[in-house]
Design a protein around this nucleic acid. Sequence first.
RNA 1: GCGGGCGUAGCUCAAUGGUAGAGCGUCAGCCUUCCAAGCUGAAUGUUGCCGGUUCGAGUCCGGUCGCCCGCUCCA
Length: 543
Amino acid sequence: MSDQPKSMDEIMALCKRRGFIFQASEIYGGIQGFWDYGPLGAQLKKNLRDAWWDDVVMTGCRGQAGPDGQPIRIVPVDSCIIQNPKVWEASGHLAGFADPMRKCPGCGHFVRADHLWDLLAESSVWFNDLIQVFDPHTGGIDSPRLLQWAKSKGKRLAPNLALVRQPEVTLSWLATRVQGQPGVPPDMKELTRYIATEQLHETGLQEPCPRCGAPLGEPAPFKLMFESYAGLTQDEDNKVYLRPETAQGIFINYKNVLDSTRVKVPFGIAQTGKAFRNEVTPRNFTFRSREFEQMEIEFFCHPDESRKWYEFWRDWRMNWWESLGLAGVNLQLREHDADELAHYAKTGAGTSDIEYRFPFTAPGFGELEGVADRTDFDLRQHMEHSGAKLEYFDQERNERYLPHVIEPSAGLDRGVLAAICEAFTPDPDRPSKVYMKFHPRLSPIKAAVFPLVKKDGMPEVGEKLRAELVRRFGRLGSIDFDEKQSIGKRYARMDEAGCPFCFTIDGDTMQDQTVTVRHRDTLAQDRIALDAVLAYLGEKLGL
RNA sequence: GCGGGCGUAGCUCAAUGGUAGAGCGUCAGCCUUCCAAGCUGAAUGUUGCCGGUUCGAGUCCGGUCGCCCGCUCCA
């Protein structure tokens, strides 16, 4: 395989041309961060969702045994997009999804308030240059050198920093402070605040923009959850939120499921559905959409067994994506470092991402699915906020506990995008110049039937075969039938749509009851019996 | 939110400030016994949207919306 990234422009053009993905509200000029699926895209997405549902829910990991040697039990729910707002209070989203952001008046830069000092230390060019100027032995203040820095490198690196704009004034405030409390030298943060402040009496101490040094504005909440109102009056009492993840709908139904479904820990609850996030920067086609669909499992287990279930799910989910054709150098499993663990993840417990190398992330990778050990964080939060008793009594262990949760959370739209990117295969040697190498399970068109010419009874035989194929496979995807124009043109069309098999009726069919199978990926042609086509396709589709 | 680039037919792109075009695709008919996208013909545009300059704007100017790239963000 070539290391050259595929062209995202060409992929997007094909998606529009063949009806996979359209820009939402296109005739009105579009709307940022929203995408619609066309006929082929909608079927492709359904096929991926169905593959997940069948393999996870219906067959419990395709009948595979879990790490305890027992069958895996997963039951589905379908919860509302809008829930009582207290759900998001308990989950942490109301606070966490409204991160205070600070805007820089100098360069328009947005900075997360709680990341400011890390950003300064780690990625601010001017800050890292400036700290070299302090006395290397004592860390003390060397005013002449600061003045020199302000008038030379500072002008270039941090043009809006108070120290650079008004060095004498700024340094005089600093000197006053140092002389005022000689026994308590200012630490790095205080020093930084002083050199960011011009008008101390008017503004108080200020904090600088990591990029240009200008004093940052006050922190303001940055709302990442969509809001609406349930009720006719649009007041605070009626405010509701569109869910930013489907997971919470599972946690809040955990007790209902236990009480109604005779499941025993360990077991899982699965759900697919839309979620909404007001992304700061929707970009990269459908990768970061504001409305997107998730496929989530919350798997409940005994706290002592969370590690082995985490490892099981991490590996099985990776294996699942591979089974759908994403195997190879474009798929990787990445275990998180300790410092990027989410707020709910236990230190030392696992969080990993299954990542795909999209053309727009290459040579890097973009997240397809996250597998996280959420511990008992969510159930505990909901138990505390709601007052409901969510503990589980384990009869076999004779023990009452709050289960730990392993969460494999996949992005359906991202999966579709990965499948499209993976399938997209330029080939200058074939008429279409490109073909979509979908795994047969995902292909929106499962097969096509072509009478080689529109005479001698071939259309009639083809029509009969088409009807049989529709009866048997029509619920999995469409069966195409085309008797117009040259056979090459029809094959070319199916290549772009990603149809894996074309069955062609020719003169020999009328004599010996055989047809040609034309393979999309290899262009090879086999001869099989007409009455073997159903079994043949069934086998190829993994049925 | 900032900086840069772009916006003309379904797609890829033409058109000195002076009547909006081509190729491909789509559709119809013909031809075709397996990749020769063949042959003939047809449909398709308020040039993203709004305003300004001009006798006249796809073209120049301002605004706005959207897309792409970089920064940023990504519980």
